[in-house]
């Protein structure tokens, strides 16, 4: 099943074009990895999928992005509802300067998902459990979220993202600020989450892409050079550039 279908997407920052003609299909309940050298437009593409580029004044997006066959670049698309369905985890953990509980309950509160305190407690608990953080923090839910370690903070951000039960989760280098142990925990988590969510992850680590993803897309200078199953891209890519990048000859 195809969840997201990008068709001829061009992105401009002012006059400068950052993405050229990207067409890419994303499979439901699978992990898709986006790889490529720095500055090639991976984050830009990811931010197209939940219209986060709207926040940047000079940024303009052209082309179609269909999610559940609905074009999110259409005028009739409501970004608030879109972002409720598409969660995002950022490169640097960015917990709000509030308590752990408030961090996780933020989304459900603004979207009116819980009718009672009990329901909210439940949502917070399941989200933290799914993010494999519950055991570590269940006694300190009312302490500030900024007091956690980097890895814990990132898992808190994941819990925050899944608290509204999004269909898709976008992850922009979620492990780049973490040590190997925390990274392993998050990778495990991603494997778990893909049962319920469609996941797109940007990563600079070839090994990570190979470990967690089923599909991979390779970006270079704003172009999508090649995409396909992770196996194929890593073992037997069609394009020479992909081959060079994966074997570490440039980038």
């Amino acid at each position: 099943m195809i969840k997201i279908k990008a068709k001829d997407v061009d992105v401009f920052y002012g006059k400068k074009q950052a993405l050229f003609n990207i067409s890419l299909d994303i499979e439901e309940n699978q992990v898709t990895a986006l790889i490529g050298p720095s500055g090639c437009g991976k984050s830009t593409f990811l931010r197209c999928l939940n219209r986060m580029n709207d926040v940047i004044d000079i940024c303009s997006v052209k082309g179609e992005i269909l999610i559940n066959d609905f074009n999110i670049n259409d005028k009739s698309c409501d970004v608030v509802r879109l972002r409720e369905k598409i969660g995002m985890v950022f490169q640097k953990p960015n917990p709000f300067p509030k308590t752990l509980y408030e961090n996780v309950s933020y989304g459900p509160t603004i979207h009116g998902m819980a009718q009672s305190k009990q329901e909210m407690d439940e949502i917070v608990e399941t989200s933290l459990k799914k993010a494999a953080l519950w055991e570590e923090v269940k006694d300190r839910l009312h302490e500030p979220g900024t007091g956690l370690s980097g890895g814990q903070q990132q898992r808190l951000c994941i819990a925050r993202a899944i608290s509204v039960r999004p269909e898709v989760i976008l992850m922009d280098e979620p492990c780049s600020a973490l040590d190997p142990i925390a990274t392993a925990q998050i990778e495990e988590l991603i494997d778990e989450l893909k049962k319920e969510h469609t996941i797109i992850i940007v990563t600079h680590s070839m090994a990570q892409a190979a470990r967690v993803s089923q599909n991979t897309g390779f970006f270079h200078l704003g172009q999508l050079i090649e995409h396909g199953s992770t196996d194929k891209i890593f073992k037997n890519p069609d394009n020479k550039k992909t081959q060079d990048y994966i074997t570490g000859r440039f980038g």
Binding site: D78, V80, R81, I110, H111, G112
Partner: peptide, 11 residues
Amino acid sequence: KNKEQLLNKRY
């Protein structure tokens, strides 16, 4: 419908 109303209120 509830959701619709809430969204309206938020806007």
